[in-house]
Write a protein that binds this DNA or RNA. Structure first.
Lengths: 335, 335
DNA sequence: TTGAAAGCGGTACCAG
DNA sequence: CTGGTACCGCTTTCAA
């Protein structure tokens, strides 16, 4: 059986309270006693029981994460941001992925509440209306990343999805493109997919370019989808000269498809992605894409959440971080 | 305050034991009583307290993960495998990354023991000797993935790193290459980096190709490292015609560098990677690489570990999964 | 089928 | 600076 503070106390000839003190407030214990206890803990291979501690302290120093999927590197990056920030403040994280599946979100929230996480970091707004309701009825701090939260009582740290997409269109136009397609994520899967589309639409409108639904395709975020969608666009009677992809993964597939169709990206076809994954710089041609502050969003989100948990702040943070259009070589200048 | 089983019990006019039973063994409770309790739990927004439960049951249904870094997609994939398998059996996971930093591993293990995870999944063997010692003194099941464990008491699920690397060299040779370089991960960071190098050395030896340390470079696993290393190889007075990269990330960098040096991969220079990340198929040229069973390793590892935890087996699993050399277009045939 | 009560391993308040 | 002792919320015999 594992040794407990009672064992240590007995062995040291002190009370459990004293042992507990050397764990939590060592300076409150006389040095001699403390050292003796420390030594015995060492000898006995004592390991603190965080379950018991958490039960009495009513705190677990654990954050629950909800992300779509860990295999998209952009979420890996923001997860890392969260993890780094959390670790620096003595928190650990439980990882949960929805895989864009309905119902998973609520399951994860339930699980986290049972495990008594101190707070939850959402990627995007809760999708399921029952989640919001559930969250509201139980007291548990949470923060939304990647999107503006739906309620102004809910803190968020995001970037401007609409504006970023708008800038993409703007750039295409400045390069002489007028026939601009879009391969988008599914609107019902993430709110931000829709936002990016809105930015795209706004951009077109601003330059009086007619919107054509035939060259806007909604697909799940995957290389295969990007490939398929691009194939379809290229077979259009009036194919686009430029394509905005809702994320870099889609763009990778689009690039592959374009090559299969013997199109020369950066020469007679323009492609822009979103996320700026590490690999995008080594694509051929190097992919022009929107760099988003994935890591910062994660770390700032985690820090803000922990501030709330620890009562270090009462204000509802609303951070909007900057994005950058990283110009590389995947967009040709049309005459 | 959150409602507890005591509240529910009082409201339902039963004892806490009965409430506990409807949670854990519903069939033991008379239907009428059960339904009443269920209804009240619903009304009161009751949420089970897993801390308290875990404390008495001495089980948390949680697995601790130790991976190098979540931003390498191959670890994301195996993490997903672990997560899927774990979730299917009612377990959740705590994620910990070492970022290849010394000391982190032991910290994570300590943390996991405090949190009373039911088991730990290691990526590779524990690097720190103190970790092994620590693990030995406390009772906690764990499993090693990605490598053969060092003790035959420790279960593992892996693939043959040596053989996979050997096959890479074999293929290079079959394509007419005799001057084969390697960009490897650091031996002191992971045991498998060394194993792959061993396979490489064996392969050379088998074909009587002299080993030349000038064209073997150890670097951290990153795109930048791959780029830099390839640059160095290409500047060698007698540069290699083929380069084996310890993983796909390094290969991406190597590809980029080769292009900067105006070399034509797949025509006058061969590159092979390791991992077969999703992006590798859309590289230009599509990257020939070793496909490893990342997802399966994760899921099989998790399942085997849970079997141990639940006492469903007493044997120490030792799985060695298959790898495949995926032939694409990054290796030219030399005359 | 149900209840009483002794844990599980800590924390924290009140005394001294 | 230290001890005594009620909790924290749930599980699990043992009896009834």
């Amino acid at each position: 059986m594992a040794t407990t503070i009672s064992d240590i106390a007995r062995l040291a000839g002190v009370s459990r309270a004293t042992v507990s003190r050397v764990i939590n407030n060592p300076e409150q214990v006389k040095e001699k006693t403390r050292n003796k206890i420390l030594r015995i803990m060492e000898e006995q291979n004592y390991v603190y029981n965080a379950l018991a501690g958490g039960l009495s302290k009513n705190s677990t120093r654990t954050l629950g994460l909800i992300i779509p999927t860990i295999t998209n590197p952009i979420f890996a990056v923001s997860t890392k941001g969260i993890q780094n920030a959390a670790a620096a403040r003595g928190y650990s994280i439980i990882l949960g992925s929805t895989e864009y599946a309905e119902g998973m979100e609520l399951n994860l929230v339930r699980l986290y509440l049972e495990k008594r996480v101190d707070g939850i970091v959402f990627t995007g707004n809760p999708q399921d209306p029952r989640t919001a309701e559930y969250l509201a009825s139980r007291q548990i701090p949470y923060i939304v990343t990647w999107e503006v939260s739906q309620s102004d009582r809910v803190p968020f740290v995001t970037f401007n999805n609409i504006k970023a997409a708008y800038q993409v269109v703007d750039y295409f136009i400045s390069m002489g493109h007028r026939r601009i397609g879009m391969i988008s994520g599914r609107f019902y899967e993430t709110g931000r997919a829709k936002k990016r589309w809105e930015g795209y639409v706004e951009g077109l409108k601003n330059w009086d370019v007619p919107y054509d639904e035939n060259i806007v395709i909604q697909k799940e975020y995957s290389v295969a989808s990007g490939r398929e969608a691009m194939g379809r666009l290229l077979r259009d009677p009036n194919p686009p000269t430029a394509v905005f992809c809702g994320n870099d993964i889609l763009a990778y597939g689009a690039i592959a498809a374009a090559k299969e169709h013997k199109r020369s990206i950066g020469t007679d076809l323009g492609i822009i992605g979103f996320d700026d994954l590490e690999m995008s710089a080594v694509m051929d041609p190097p992919l022009t894409t929107v760099r988003i502050p994935g890591h910062e969003m994660g770390s700032m989100g985690a820090n803000a959440l922990i501030d709330i948990i620890e009562g270090k702040t009462t204000e509802t943070v609303q951070y909007v971080l900057e994005t950058d259009l990283i110009l590389r070589s995947s967009v040709p200048k049309l005459k």
